[in-house]
Design a binder for these strands. Structure first.
Length: 315
DNA sequence: AAGTTCGCCAACCGCACGGGC
DNA sequence: CGCCCGTGCGGTTGGCGAACT
C-alpha cells in the first residue's frame, strides 16, 4: 500500500486520535484556521498527515457537528435523497445540517441498507403499488434495522394499544394479508412486523392491522417454528397471491431473504386462533395449519390487537 | 465466565478533479 | 499540454464494544 503524497514526506502516526492530538488540532484551527491541510500538521505539531487532520476535523472536531442518533425525519430524508442522488454522500450530507458524509454513509450502510433491500423486494412484488397507494398502508420509518409502520392504519385509530410483551404471544408473529378471491384489485398483502431485540417488546406500532378490504391472519414462519422461544426480529414478508385464486397460498411466498417454496406452506399457520368471531369452519381449517382456503375466511373486517384483550376480528 | 460472533463507526485508501506552473 | 500537488469523495477496513453462545 502506497502512502498518500501528503503523508510520505515524514513519519506520520495512524490509527485512532488521542485526546491530546484532538486538542492540538482544535486549538490550532480555532486560532489560525486550517489553511493548507498539507502544512497544518507541521505548524500544529502533529505527527499526522494533512489528510488525516482534515478528516478528523470534518468528521469529529468541527464545532457545528450534530451528535447523537439520526431522527426519523433525517432518516426519511436520507432515504429519499439516496433514491434521488444515489451514493453521493457529500451531496446528501449537505441537506442534513451538522451531519457529515461519512456519518451518513455509515448510517446508510449499517442501519438503512438492509431494510432497503427488503423494501426493494417488496417494491418488486407484483401489485405492490396498489397497496402503497392505499391510504391505509402504514408509513415506515427506521427502527433498529427493519422497516416498521409508524402509525396504525385508519380503522384502528383512537384505540389505546399500549405496549405488550412479546412473550405474551404464543409465537413471534408475522401477519400476512391477502385478498379474497372476490377482490381482484387487491391481490397483495404486506406485513411489517417487528420485535425489538433489546427490549423484547412488540410495540403497538409494530404490528399491522388490516383494513376492511383485506383478509388478515397471523402466521408463524418456518424458522420461528423451529425455535419458538428465540426472540428474533421478524422480517417483512410479502405474500403474493394471484387475483382470483381461491386457495392460499397458491403462488409464491416472498421473504426478505428467501423465496420460499410451496413446501413451506405447512409452516405457515395462524398463531391467534382465539379470533373468536372467525367461523368455526375457518377456525378448524386455520388451526390445522396445513392448508386452508380464502373462501373459508370472513369476507371483510378488521383485526384488532390489544394488549389487554384477545385478538378480535370485527367483520 | 470465557470465547466467539456481530455490528458500528472512525479512519484509511485509492481515485478523480481542479488549479498552478 | 502535461505534470505536480492539494483537496474532496466514496468504498473499504479494522478495532472495539456489545451481544450471543
Amino acid at each position: 500500500m502506497g502512502q498518500h503524497s501528503c503523508c510520505n514526506k515524514q513519519k506520520v502516526k495512524r490509527g485512532l486520535w488521542s485526546p491530546e492530538e484532538d486538542e492540538k488540532l482544535k486549538n490550532y484551527i480555532s486560532t489560525y484556521g486550517h489553511g493548507s491541510w498539507s502544512s497544518l500538521p507541521r505548524f500544529a505539531g502533529l505527527q499526522r498527515c494533512g489528510k488525516s487532520c482534515r478528516l478528523r476535523w470534518i468528521n469529529y472536531l468541527r464545532p457545528d457537528l450534530k451528535k447523537g442518533n439520526f431522527s426519523s425525519e433525517e432518516t426519511e430524508l436520507i432515504i429519499e435523497l439516496q433514491r434521488i442522488l444515489g451514493n453521493r454522500w457529500a451531496q446528501i450530507a449537505k441537506h442534513l445540517p451538522g451531519r457529515t458524509d461519512n456519518e451518513v454513509k455509515n448510517f446508510w450502510n449499517s442501519a438503512i441498507k438492509k431494510k432497503h433491500i427488503s423494501q426493494n423486494l417488496f417494491d418488486q412484488a407484483p401489485f405492490s403499488n396498489l397497496s402503497r397507494s392505499n391510504s391505509n398502508f402504514p408509513q415506515y420509518s427506521e427502527f433498529n434495522q427493519v422497516y416498521i409502520p409508524t402509525q396504525p392504519p385508519s380503522p384502528v385509530q383512537g384505540i389505546d394499544f399500549g405496549e405488550f410483551k412479546a412473550d405474551q404471544l404464543s409465537h413471534s408473529a408475522i401477519m400476512l394479508t391477502t385478498s379474497p378471491s372476490s377482490a381482484p384489485a387487491c391481490p397483495l398483502g404486506y406485513l411489517p412486523q417487528f420485535i425489538d431485540r433489546q427490549q423484547q417488546i412488540l410495540r403497538p406500532e409494530d404490528y399491522s392491522i388490516v383494513s376492511s378490504d383485506q383478509y388478515p391472519f397471523f402466521a408463524t414462519n418456518k424458522l420461528l417454528d423451529q425455535n419458538p422461544s428465540t426472540m428474533l426480529p421478524v422480517l417483512p414478508k410479502v405474500l403474493e397471491s394471484i387475483a382470483g385464486s381461491s386457495n392460499f397460498p397458491s403462488e409464491r411466498l416472498y421473504a426478505n431473504d428467501m423465496l420460499a417454496s410451496s413446501d413451506d406452506i405447512e409452516y405457515i399457520k395462524p398463531i391467534m386462533p382465539a379470533c373468536s368471531t372467525l367461523s368455526s369452519s375457518s377456525m378448524s381449517q386455520t388451526s390445522s395449519a396445513s392448508s386452508f382456503s380464502l373462501s373459508q375466511l370472513p369476507c371483510s373486517g378488521t383485526m384488532f390487537v390489544n394488549p389487554s384483550l384477545p385478538p378480535r376480528w370485527v367483520p
